[in-house]
């Protein structure tokens, strides 16, 4: 098995693993951010360039460094490869540049955007962006479009990650949308007189890293951090039926698929589960969902009670120990 070293952490990974996957196996700070890569979609990644890293040593056989920074999501590891991510100032500078490029034409309308709070671009710019833009020209804008009954397209917010195109290609029966035009006027659009009406089309919303594709049934209903995410499942013939219900009291505001710590959906859900089952009686509620990611959702008052109890217990234990130490010292 090839052994790769990322920022000083070594790990052995199966043949064909990419640098990004290897970094995720190590975990922590050294994981490069990714805006377009999606592990459950084949052939995704390589476009946004936020995950670029420097390969200081190509492999044990050929120790030359790679001449240019590479996209870690699409570069397979070689045995003896040495990768620099956060230890290379050059990479951090380049990443800052990419974030700036992604933001120059982004409307930054987070206060009115439904994605705010669970937006990858928000997290990315918080971590790697600058506080002030150097761009002083009018931003590129597009008309808002309804693409089908359930999805609203805000092309202005799009970063052209191609994830929704890959979802339509790989999960739905037929892709009726794609990228039109080129350069900075390239846009996601449906084909002439076509609407996205497919049993699995709702997943396009889940994979969208920004607020370009939003759920028309949920638009402007609530901020995500005011809702309680609950794991729930139901018997579904089309999909796994495992979903997250975003609830306010007894009311279900929206249903999404379950996202892991990298904000990626592993089991996609069908539109019936997503849009037609808005009554809590139709679901078996398993319990509160813990949101792992650095997000305002996990920072609010609502937390997983069990882990909270555990944490309090630990603290009490420590306090008790301290007190015993002190008393024994006297």
């Amino acid at each position: 098995m090839p052994k790769v070293t990322i920022d000083g952490h070594s790990i052995e990974v199966p043949e064909g693993t990419t640098i990004l996957q290897a970094a995720r196996m190590i975990g922590g700070e050294i994981v490069p951010p990714a805006m377009c890569y999606y592990s459950s979609l084949k052939g995704s990644g390589g476009y946004c360039r936020t995950c670029i890293v420097r390969v200081a040593q190509g492999s044990a056989k050929d120790p030359r460094p790679m001449p240019k920074p590479v996209a870690s999501c699409r570069t397979p590891v070689m045995d003896g490869m040495v990768v620099e991510n956060i230890t290379s100032p050059e990479v951090l500078e380049a990443r800052k540049g990419v974030v700036e490029f992604l933001l120059i034409n982004h409307p930054l309308d987070c206060p009115v955007c439904d994605q705010a709070g669970e937006c990858d671009l928000q997290n990315l710019s918080f971590a790697h962006g600058t506080e002030k833009t150097r761009y002083e020209f009018p931003r590129r804008t597009f008309e808002k479009k309804d693409i089908g009954n359930y999805i609203k397209l805000h092309m202005t917010r799009c970063i052209l990650c191609y994830r929704c195109v890959k979802v339509a290609d790989q999960i739905t029966d037929e892709r009726v949308h794609g990228v039109m035009n080129r350069g900075d006027v390239a846009e996601i659009s449906t084909y002439i007189e076509k609407a996205v009406e497919n049993d699995f089309s709702g997943n396009m919303i889940d994979v969208c890293p920004v607020g370009a594709l939003t759920d028309r049934t949920y638009r402007f209903k609530s901020r995500v951090w005011f809702l309680n995410p609950m794991d729930a499942h139901r018997d579904c013939k089309k999909c796994s039926g495992k979903a997250v219900l975003w609830m306010h009291g007894e009311e279900i505001y929206r249903v999404t698929a379950r996202k892991d710590q990298n904000a990626e959906v592993k089991e996609f859900i069908c539109n019936e589960c997503r849009y037609d089952k808005k009554d809590v009686k139709q679901w078996v509620v398993e319990g509160p969902r813990h949101i792992d990611r650095t997000s305002v959702i996990s920072a609010n008052h609502y937390e997983d009670l069990n882990s909270l109890k555990h944490a309090i217990g630990e603290q009490q234990k420590k306090l008790q120990e301290k007190i015993t130490q002190k008393t024994s010292g006297i």
Binding site: R49, T50, F101, I104, L160, R182, G183
Partner: peptide, 21 residues
């Protein structure tokens, strides 16, 4: 180059237009 950028990756898509402006 701004006109001919394919728009696939962000530095070229956004950067060429910015430089032109």
């Amino acid at each position: 180059y701004h006109h001919e950028s394919c728009g696939q990756c962000s530095p070229c898509r956004e950067g060429t237009g910015w430089m032109e402006k």
